[in-house]
Protein backbone atom coordinates (compact mmCIF):
# COMPACT_ATOMS: atom_id res chain seq x y z
CA UNK A 1 0.00 0.00 0.00
CA UNK A 2 2.56 2.60 1.15
CA UNK A 3 6.12 2.08 0.14
CA UNK A 4 8.94 4.47 0.89
CA UNK A 5 12.10 3.87 -1.09
CA UNK A 6 15.49 5.34 -0.37
CA UNK A 7 14.07 8.65 0.88
CA UNK A 8 16.58 11.43 1.52
CA UNK A 9 15.29 14.75 2.83
CA UNK A 10 16.96 17.96 4.00
CA UNK A 11 15.77 21.23 5.43
CA UNK A 12 17.90 24.36 5.24
CA UNK A 13 20.82 22.26 4.01
CA UNK A 14 20.63 19.90 7.00
CA UNK A 15 19.96 16.25 6.23
CA UNK A 16 17.01 14.89 8.22
CA UNK A 17 16.06 11.63 6.50
CA UNK A 18 18.75 9.27 5.24
CA UNK A 19 18.07 6.45 2.80
CA UNK A 20 14.82 5.67 4.55
CA UNK A 21 12.95 2.56 3.44
CA UNK A 22 9.58 1.47 4.78
CA UNK A 23 6.68 -0.69 3.63
CA UNK A 24 3.20 -0.69 5.11
CA UNK A 25 0.68 -3.12 3.66
CA UNK A 26 -3.06 -2.54 3.28
CA UNK A 27 -4.80 -3.34 6.54
CA UNK A 28 -1.59 -2.91 8.50
CA UNK A 29 -1.02 -0.58 11.42
CA UNK A 30 2.66 0.29 11.52
CA UNK A 31 4.10 2.21 14.43
CA UNK A 32 7.18 4.38 14.21
CA UNK A 33 8.92 5.09 17.47
CA UNK A 34 12.07 6.96 18.15
CA UNK A 35 13.75 9.63 20.20
CA UNK A 36 13.29 13.37 19.75
CA UNK A 37 14.93 14.67 16.60
CA UNK A 38 15.03 11.30 14.86
CA UNK A 39 13.02 12.64 11.90
CA UNK A 40 9.59 11.14 12.65
CA UNK A 41 7.59 14.32 12.13
CA UNK A 42 9.66 15.23 9.08
CA UNK A 43 8.67 11.90 7.57
CA UNK A 44 4.99 12.64 8.27
CA UNK A 45 5.22 16.12 6.74
CA UNK A 46 7.12 14.93 3.67
CA UNK A 47 4.51 12.24 2.98
CA UNK A 48 1.73 14.84 3.35
CA UNK A 49 3.53 17.32 1.08
CA UNK A 50 4.83 20.18 3.21
CA UNK A 51 6.84 22.56 1.07
CA UNK A 52 9.60 23.49 3.50
CA UNK A 53 11.45 20.22 2.97
CA UNK A 54 13.82 19.38 0.16
CA UNK A 55 13.44 15.87 -1.11
CA UNK A 56 16.92 14.95 -2.38
CA UNK A 57 16.03 11.53 -3.68
CA UNK A 58 13.65 8.65 -3.20
CA UNK A 59 10.00 7.84 -3.67
CA UNK A 60 6.86 7.61 -1.59
CA UNK A 61 4.51 5.25 -3.40
CA UNK A 62 0.84 4.99 -2.52
CA UNK A 63 -0.45 1.92 -4.33
CA UNK A 64 2.40 2.29 -6.78
CA UNK A 65 1.96 6.01 -7.47
CA UNK A 66 4.74 8.38 -6.38
CA UNK A 67 2.87 10.97 -4.32
CA UNK A 68 5.93 13.22 -4.05
CA UNK A 69 4.96 14.58 -7.46
CA UNK A 70 1.52 15.64 -6.21
CA UNK A 71 0.38 18.72 -4.29
CA UNK A 72 -0.91 18.21 -0.72
CA UNK A 73 -4.56 18.51 -1.81
CA UNK A 74 -4.03 15.98 -4.61
CA UNK A 75 -2.44 13.60 -2.12
CA UNK A 76 -5.48 14.08 0.14
CA UNK A 77 -7.82 13.29 -2.74
CA UNK A 78 -5.80 10.12 -3.40
CA UNK A 79 -6.59 9.09 0.14
CA UNK A 80 -3.68 10.30 2.26
CA UNK A 81 -4.44 11.83 5.63
CA UNK A 82 -2.19 13.40 8.24
CA UNK A 83 -3.39 13.87 11.81
CA UNK A 84 -1.19 16.72 13.04
CA UNK A 85 0.93 16.75 16.15
CA UNK A 86 -0.27 20.32 16.61
CA UNK A 87 -3.56 20.82 14.77
CA UNK A 88 -3.69 24.38 13.45
CA UNK A 89 -6.18 26.96 14.72
CA UNK A 90 -8.04 28.76 11.97
CA UNK A 91 -9.89 31.80 13.34
CA UNK A 92 -13.00 32.84 11.46
CA UNK A 93 -13.55 29.50 9.70
CA UNK A 94 -16.52 27.72 11.19
CA UNK A 95 -15.70 24.06 11.73
CA UNK A 96 -18.78 22.90 9.81
CA UNK A 97 -17.92 25.14 6.84
CA UNK A 98 -14.42 23.72 6.80
CA UNK A 99 -15.58 20.08 7.02
CA UNK A 100 -17.99 20.56 4.15
CA UNK A 101 -15.39 22.37 2.03
CA UNK A 102 -12.81 19.64 2.66
CA UNK A 103 -15.14 16.74 1.97
CA UNK A 104 -16.56 18.27 -1.20
CA UNK A 105 -13.13 19.38 -2.47
CA UNK A 106 -11.87 15.80 -2.22
CA UNK A 107 -15.01 14.42 -3.85
CA UNK A 108 -14.69 16.94 -6.67
CA UNK A 109 -11.05 15.97 -7.31
CA UNK A 110 -12.14 12.34 -7.51
CA UNK A 111 -14.95 13.22 -9.92
CA UNK A 112 -17.67 12.46 -7.38
CA UNK A 113 -20.86 14.44 -6.74
CA UNK A 114 -21.07 16.88 -3.84
CA UNK A 115 -22.81 15.44 -0.81
CA UNK A 116 -26.34 16.61 -0.11
CA UNK A 117 -26.74 18.61 3.10
CA UNK A 118 -28.73 15.87 4.90
CA UNK A 119 -26.18 13.24 3.93
CA UNK A 120 -23.32 15.49 5.02
CA UNK A 121 -25.02 16.19 8.35
CA UNK A 122 -25.60 12.49 8.88
CA UNK A 123 -21.93 11.70 8.35
CA UNK A 124 -20.78 14.55 10.57
CA UNK A 125 -23.06 13.37 13.35
CA UNK A 126 -21.80 9.81 13.09
CA UNK A 127 -18.14 10.86 13.16
CA UNK A 128 -18.80 13.42 15.89
CA UNK A 129 -20.56 10.91 18.11
CA UNK A 130 -17.68 8.48 17.76
CA UNK A 131 -15.15 11.10 18.92
CA UNK A 132 -17.38 12.67 21.57
CA UNK A 133 -17.55 15.96 19.70
CA UNK A 134 -20.45 18.12 20.77
CA UNK A 135 -22.48 20.09 18.16
CA UNK A 136 -21.39 23.26 19.97
CA UNK A 137 -17.76 22.56 19.02
CA UNK A 138 -18.74 22.26 15.37
CA UNK A 139 -20.25 25.72 15.43
CA UNK A 140 -17.03 27.31 16.68
CA UNK A 141 -14.10 28.41 14.57
CA UNK A 142 -11.85 25.49 13.66
CA UNK A 143 -9.71 24.48 16.65
CA UNK A 144 -9.91 28.01 18.11
CA UNK A 145 -10.17 27.86 21.88
CA UNK A 146 -10.17 24.04 21.76
CA UNK A 147 -8.18 22.21 24.41
CA UNK A 148 -5.31 19.99 23.27
CA UNK A 149 -7.55 16.94 23.57
CA UNK A 150 -10.37 18.56 21.64
CA UNK A 151 -8.02 19.47 18.81
CA UNK A 152 -6.78 15.89 18.51
CA UNK A 153 -10.31 14.54 18.61
CA UNK A 154 -11.27 17.01 15.91
CA UNK A 155 -8.41 15.76 13.73
CA UNK A 156 -9.47 12.15 14.15
CA UNK A 157 -13.05 13.14 13.49
CA UNK A 158 -11.90 14.62 10.18
CA UNK A 159 -10.22 11.33 9.44
CA UNK A 160 -13.44 9.45 10.15
CA UNK A 161 -15.36 11.81 7.87
CA UNK A 162 -12.84 11.85 5.02
CA UNK A 163 -12.29 8.07 5.12
CA UNK A 164 -8.70 8.08 3.81
CA UNK A 165 -6.98 5.00 2.42
CA UNK A 166 -3.85 5.69 4.36
CA UNK A 167 -3.57 7.73 7.56
CA UNK A 168 -0.53 9.04 9.37
CA UNK A 169 -0.98 9.94 13.02
CA UNK A 170 1.83 12.24 14.13
CA UNK A 171 2.16 11.97 17.90
CA UNK A 172 -1.57 12.05 18.28
CA UNK A 173 -1.19 11.09 21.93
CA UNK A 174 1.01 14.04 22.89
CA UNK A 175 -0.67 16.31 25.41
CA UNK A 176 -3.61 13.97 25.95
CA UNK A 177 -4.90 12.66 29.26
CA UNK A 178 -5.75 8.99 29.67
CA UNK A 179 -9.42 9.40 28.79
CA UNK A 180 -8.63 11.42 25.68
CA UNK A 181 -6.09 8.83 24.53
CA UNK A 182 -8.78 6.19 24.86
CA UNK A 183 -11.34 8.20 22.88
CA UNK A 184 -8.84 8.93 20.12
CA UNK A 185 -7.66 5.30 20.04
CA UNK A 186 -11.23 4.03 19.87
CA UNK A 187 -11.81 6.36 16.94
CA UNK A 188 -8.77 5.04 15.13
CA UNK A 189 -9.59 1.41 15.90
CA UNK A 190 -13.09 1.85 14.52
CA UNK A 191 -11.53 2.87 11.21
CA UNK A 192 -9.16 -0.06 10.98
CA UNK A 193 -9.97 -2.16 7.95
CA UNK A 194 -8.33 -4.49 5.48
CA UNK A 195 -8.22 -1.74 2.89
CA UNK A 196 -6.77 0.98 5.07
CA UNK A 197 -3.21 1.42 6.28
CA UNK A 198 -1.95 3.44 9.25
CA UNK A 199 1.38 4.88 10.24
CA UNK A 200 1.30 5.74 13.92
CA UNK A 201 4.14 7.96 15.07
CA UNK A 202 4.74 8.15 18.79
CA UNK A 203 7.38 8.54 21.49
CA UNK A 204 5.54 6.46 24.00
CA UNK A 205 4.40 2.84 24.02
CA UNK A 206 1.29 3.95 25.95
CA UNK A 207 -0.67 4.80 22.77
CA UNK A 208 0.19 1.40 21.33
CA UNK A 209 -1.58 -0.31 24.19
CA UNK A 210 -4.77 1.18 22.79
CA UNK A 211 -3.95 1.10 19.09
CA UNK A 212 -2.21 -2.24 18.88
CA UNK A 213 0.17 -2.18 15.90
CA UNK A 214 1.01 -5.02 13.56
CA UNK A 215 4.57 -3.81 13.11
CA UNK A 216 6.85 -1.49 15.06
CA UNK A 217 9.78 0.38 13.53
CA UNK A 218 12.44 2.25 15.41
CA UNK A 219 13.67 5.41 13.78
CA UNK A 220 16.94 7.08 14.65
CA UNK A 221 19.19 9.41 12.73
CA UNK A 222 16.69 9.75 9.93
CA UNK A 223 16.39 6.05 9.06
CA UNK A 224 14.64 2.92 10.24
CA UNK A 225 17.15 1.13 12.42
CA UNK A 226 15.07 -1.78 13.64
CA UNK A 227 11.74 -3.38 12.84
CA UNK A 228 9.69 -5.94 14.66
CA UNK A 229 6.28 -6.90 15.93
CA UNK A 230 4.21 -5.25 18.63
CA UNK A 231 6.48 -6.74 21.32
CA UNK A 232 9.19 -4.30 20.22
CA UNK A 233 7.17 -1.50 21.80
CA UNK A 234 7.23 -3.20 25.19
CA UNK A 235 10.94 -3.77 24.85
CA UNK A 236 11.49 -0.07 24.18
CA UNK A 237 9.46 0.73 27.29
CA UNK A 238 12.12 -1.16 29.27
CA UNK A 239 15.29 -0.21 27.42
CA UNK A 240 14.57 3.28 26.14
CA UNK A 241 16.14 4.74 23.00
CA UNK A 242 19.69 5.07 24.23
CA UNK A 243 21.23 2.30 22.17
CA UNK A 244 19.54 3.61 19.00
CA UNK A 245 20.64 7.17 19.66
CA UNK A 246 24.20 5.89 19.83
CA UNK A 247 23.66 3.90 16.67
CA UNK A 248 22.38 6.98 14.85
CA UNK A 249 25.35 9.03 16.00
Amino acid sequence: MLEIKNLNVAIGGRRILNDLDLKVAAGEVAAIMGPNGSGKSTLAYVIAGKEDYEVLSGEVLLDGENVLELSPDERAAKGLFLAFQYPVEIPGVATMTFLKAALNAQRKQRGEEELSIPEFMKRVKKAGDMLDIKPEMLRRALNVGFSGGEKKRMDIMQMALLEPRFAILDETDSGLDIDAVRIVADGVNALRSRQRGFLVITHYPRLLEHIVPDTVHVMAGGRIVRSGGKELASELERTGYREYAEEAA
Binding site: K50, P72, D73, A77, L80, P87, I90, F98, A102, A105
Partner: peptide, 17 residues
Amino acid sequence: FYLETRGLPPPEAEALL
Protein backbone atom coordinates in the same frame (compact mmCIF):
# COMPACT_ATOMS: atom_id res chain seq x y z
CA PHE B 1 -0.89 23.61 4.51
CA TYR B 2 -3.42 22.29 7.02
CA LEU B 3 -6.31 23.09 4.71
CA GLU B 4 -4.52 21.62 1.70
CA THR B 5 -3.87 18.35 3.52
CA ARG B 6 -7.62 18.15 3.97
CA GLY B 7 -8.12 18.30 0.21
CA LEU B 8 -8.63 22.00 -0.47
CA PRO B 9 -6.73 23.14 -3.58
CA PRO B 10 -4.50 26.18 -2.85
CA PRO B 11 -6.86 28.80 -4.37
CA GLU B 12 -9.77 27.47 -2.31
CA ALA B 13 -7.69 27.25 0.84
CA GLU B 14 -6.51 30.82 0.29
CA ALA B 15 -10.05 32.07 -0.32
CA LEU B 16 -11.32 30.34 2.81
CA LEU B 17 -8.61 32.02 4.92
